[in-house]
Simulated assay, not measured.
Amino acid sequence: MYRTQLILILLSIFLSFQTLAQTSLKKYVSLTVLGKAKETENMFHRVDTTKYPLIPKSVKYLLTNSAGLFVSFKTNSTSIAAKWCTSDKKSSSNMTAIAYEGLDIYIKKDGKWQFAGVGRPGTKSCSESVLVSNMDSSEKECLVYLPLYDETKSLEIGVDENAKISENTNPFQKQIIVYGSSIVQGASASRPGLAYPSRLSRNTGLNFVNIGVSGSAKMEKEVADMVSEMPGDVYVLDCVPNSSPAEIKERTKYLVKKIRSSNPIAPIIIIQTIVREHGYFDKSVGLRVQQQNEEIKRQLEELVKESVKDLYFISADNLLGNDHEATTDGTHPNDLGFDRMIQKFQPEILNVLKKHKII
């Protein structure tokens, strides 16, 4: 009798370990990458730059970074993992490694997107990480954002071996093209999903497309031609931070008129540059920002006089608050800074969309 009981106990323990092993097993799938203005030959590039051979090399390279791209899916898995590879590039000093070349996941809860976990990059170009675990087995709608500042080479999403996973279409409606600097691309948000275009998408349900090109948003003619070919319901131009006052004077009208000629009814929203926090002490920086903002306002006024329609303006006033705590390095917003920017951007952009009956 005792021998039989012992055998049953050992068998029960063995089966428990077997069940645990099975639930911890992962199956990995590749999903369609979303968040681009148009489809690309390389699924992880934001723009198919082979079609624009004349754009600057820096812009071409930066558009291989996966800022703003994501995968969308539903699953009943109790855990979600990822395997992904990036280039050999190392993260910069003013960003977290997670933002630069890691992942983060959002899961819809009570109708809203809620942060659920991160994929921490390893020390090599390929990483594997559990994003979230110990969940219930109900069906969940998920978003996984790709790295902001590195080129993604591959991405697979892992779920429990016996779980279901199905690909979603883009959960965000319409198309709002956001062309701009490193601030648009996501510096210095702490995670990929905290770049301001992505936050605006989750807040509003609208598709804000990230065309941020760090340090290189200078409104070159070839880039203006490229942006104008991106289908958009609205165009947001946040490129003043990278453009010198002289470049703003020389190039703004061409960019705006080119977009308008390709998209006759789409509103165009122009944003002044944020104040550089170190510009309060560095007088050269402070003067440059002042001149940038004065020049972009002047160009907008001239465009209106030239009868270019449906132009809108968001000023730099109070974009970062007044406590001087909203940047990482004096230039790039931290998460607090982005939050304050969104508090100003979101209602103004939504008002434009409502006025034009886009929403």
Rank of each mutant, 00 (worst) to 15 (best):
I105F: 06
V130C: 11
S127K: 00
L11E: 07
L69Q: 00
N203A: 12
C142N: 14
A82D: 01
A99C: 03
F345I: 07
A21Y: 15
G193V: 04
V213C: 08
E128M: 03
A326W: 04
E306M: 04
K83H: 09
Y312E: 01
I176Q: 00
M43E: 13
Y235E: 04
E41V: 15
I13Y: 09
S77K: 09
H356I: 00
G330V: 11
R202G: 11
Q18I: 15
E325C: 12
T152K: 07
S24I: 15
Y2S: 14
T169Y: 13
L336W: 08
W113T: 05
S188D: 06
N42H: 08
S315F: 04
G117A: 02
T40C: 06
N170S: 13
I55K: 00
E302T: 14
G158I: 02
R276E: 12
A81S: 15
K36Y: 14
L103D: 05
K305Y: 07
H45P: 08
N76Q: 08
L237E: 07
F44D: 03
S129I: 10
K57N: 14
K36W: 12
L319S: 06
S137L: 12
Y52S: 05
C142A: 15
H278G: 09
G215T: 01
N263C: 00
L103V: 06
I270C: 03
L131C: 01
D136W: 04
Q114M: 13
G286M: 05
I80V: 14
K357D: 09
D150G: 04
T96W: 01
F338Y: 15
R276T: 09
T32M: 12
I157R: 08
L319I: 08
I177D: 07
F115N: 00
P147S: 01
E348D: 06
E151D: 05
A21M: 10
S201Y: 02
V144C: 04
L20K: 13
T40V: 03
K354M: 04
